[in-house]
Design a protein around this nucleic acid. Structure first.
Lengths: 371, 371
DNA sequence: CATAATATGGCATACGTATACGCAAGTGCC
DNA sequence: GGCACTTGCGTATACGTATGCCATATTATG
């Protein structure tokens, strides 16, 4: 390892005293950082530094023999390319940043578990592609047109978070303006700003509706803010209404309560519905958290689940199978989501945009509807 | 923005034709990447590039007036320091890597939710300190004496994951050997390899024991692999035994079943216990996942919770409050954990190691013991 | 008023890699 | 056997910042 430095010296164009300098530093107690560089490999392999770089990056203008020799030596010396130098020179960090947005909920809440669940699939996907993944949590209100790309920290961003879309919009426009590459999880439609990946919420909503209707339910309530602020919820609602219309049922707006994804707000919404004295025999909640809160309210009001009211959620959180009764819900394609998000972003970075597409969702029937 | 390039040109020591080159590149369709550099700021401020660097990093050898001017211009041009260049030059990435270890469970399992919960606190702590956070999931068996630090990707590592400690050990030794800075979540004791942050598992185990004993339980079973492979579980078990000893009760090893943290394994362990025909009136599970599985087995065997058997878990997962009945458990100090992990790592990186310490835990009583 | 001590900022250079360009040797072709 | 190519690699340099060492301006000190 000592003579690694010799290589450096030999390669160093000017400072011929480097070696001695280094020894001095060493004797003074400062670690000489004998981390090998591509120069060291080059010296040992009897080639130039650029050849080492080319060999290790798989350039085809290096003979197989040379490449093999270089790789062998690199392994021996435990060499690994300096990420910073490489990124600086190539202007490509091979890193993407994952930004979570916390919702503005009453308490100082945690991140939506649904997105945490996506984390696994995203990291795996990044690992497969040799990408590093930076993560960060942001408050919706924060100034997060962050400098991730500005500062060459990351080549692109993945944005995750339910949240008021209209708040989102201006930031997205900024990102586009400054040329930042990003993909967002959300409602997929024509006039989205930037690339979006999302579930087929309409289809999933219809699925939910058909399930409930198939069980003989006729007056289906909906919990979730179904407007332009929360387009995903809106789509789920419209899917539900479509199913009802097809069955000749009325999708009564009076049975809808706006709420965002939070257990306590789901509870409140359901209380409100109960107190309205309107009749309903099923509830489709726009998220499991809402559904869980709603079930609490129903139980508190003495309504049997699913005897009096069938309850459905959305997301299939781990918790959904543990509630009492276990919650019927819609499972989104988490694995597909992670893959598609990363794939889309990489395509964007490489300047060959992918067409947008939605992911399918599956109904998971449990006792909150089946009894 | 055009004349930014003039600055660059002025600063460029050799290639006086840079400006023209750049214009040419531009006309050829390649984006000239007019991202401002410290040279641009310097030009506008009428100072040298090094002065800009010093000003922005807070060096005290820059006058307040100059600094203010530079900061103002930087803001105007929307400048941000190039992370790669900065890290390369300073040999400090201001980034830490968070490595999750997946357990080797029967299925292709997900990460332990307990660690996901820690994520929030860790990211927040990093944000506060201006650190970037890389994350990655690893299989325990993987070759994860990764090159994170080798390649200057990160200044240090945080390792999270329950897992067979003896498997862990050799990797940790390697990390120490190659001079990688890291902190680990786990059982804190004298002869740990590397820095460790963890809960006071013994104290928490005793707390659990006292709770159950206080409710009149006398024959307390334990589910969890309490040996050197899982020292945290072992400590919890010993805490339980200590509480029983103090109450003059016998900590019967026959009532212990080894299992790692997984719902299905908890189920299996409990079935085994039930089939042993030994009498017990309480179970302390080493984790909530185990407890949840155990409850399923108890219910299946027709034992009432907590009537026949009181059940306790450990971790206070979100799911713990949703089980039926809701699970009494031990809540660890997640916020403190994240803070302490990051703090310890930073201290290590700055070469001023912190003394080890354990974090307190709190009992959360719910109906699985209270009835 | 002369000299020493700061305060401020410029100059030169290094960090480790990737890539445009060019040169030599080898290959195919007629 | 001369020509155009291709293959394989070295030369030179750029990426954008941070820092050791000086030079000057400024102030304090006797």
């Amino acid at each position: 390892m000592q003579d690694c430095n010799v290589a450096r010296m030999a390669a160093n164009r000017k400072n011929t005293e480097f070696y001695e300098d280094n020894r001095e530093a060493e004797s003074m107690g400062r670690k000489p950082s004998n981390r090998p560089t591509s120069f060291d490999i080059a010296y040992r392999a009897g080639v130039s530094q650029p050849t080492v770089s080319r060999a290790l990056r798989g350039s085809k203008s290096v003979s197989a023999a040379t490449r093999a020799r270089i790789e062998e030596i690199a392994r021996e010396l435990n060499y690994s390319v300096d990420k910073n130098a490489s990124s600086l020179r190539s202007q490509r960090s091979n890193t993407i940043a994952l930004l979570f947005f916390e919702e503005q909920t009453p308490d100082d809440s945690k991140i939506n578990p649904f997105f945490l669940a996506m984390l696994g699939s995203i990291t795996r996907q990044c690992a497969n592609r040799g990408l590093d993944l930076l993560i960060s949590f942001q408050k919706m209100e924060d100034d997060w047109h962050v400098r991730y790309q500005d500062s060459h920290r990351a080549d692109g961003l993945i944005l995750l978070g339910y949240g008021d879309y209209t708040l989102y919009e201006s930031r997205l426009t900024q990102l586009v303006g400054q040329g930042t590459q990003f993909v967002r999880w959300g409602s997929v439609n024509e006039d989205n700003i930037g690339a979006t990946v999302g579930s087929d919420n309409f289809g999933a909503g219809r699925l939910a509706g058909e399930h409930l209707i198939g069980l003989g339910r006729r007056k289906i309530a909906f919990l979730g803010q179904a407007d332009e602020h929360y387009p995903e919820f809106a789509e789920r609602y419209h899917g539900l209404c479509a199913a009802m219309a097809e069955a000749g049922l009325d999708c009564d707006p009076a049975l809808r309560r706006d709420t965002i994804s939070h257990e306590d707000l789901g509870y409140a919404a359901m209380r409100d519905l109960i107190e309205s004295d309107l009749a309903f025999d099923a509830v489709f909640a726009a998220s499991d958290l809402i559904a869980i809160g709603a079930m609490r309210a129903l139980v508190a009001a003495g309504r049997a689940i699913p005897g009096d009211v069938a309850v459905m959620g959305f997301d299939d959180l781990p918790a959904a199978s543990m509630t009492n009764p276990p919650l019927t819900t819609v499972m989104q394609d988490l694995k597909g989501a992670g893959e598609r998000l990363v794939e889309t972003l990489v395509a964007l970075i490489e300047d060959r945009p992918l067409p947008e597409a939605t992911l399918g969702a599956r109904l998971v029937a449990r006792r909150s509807t089946l009894g």
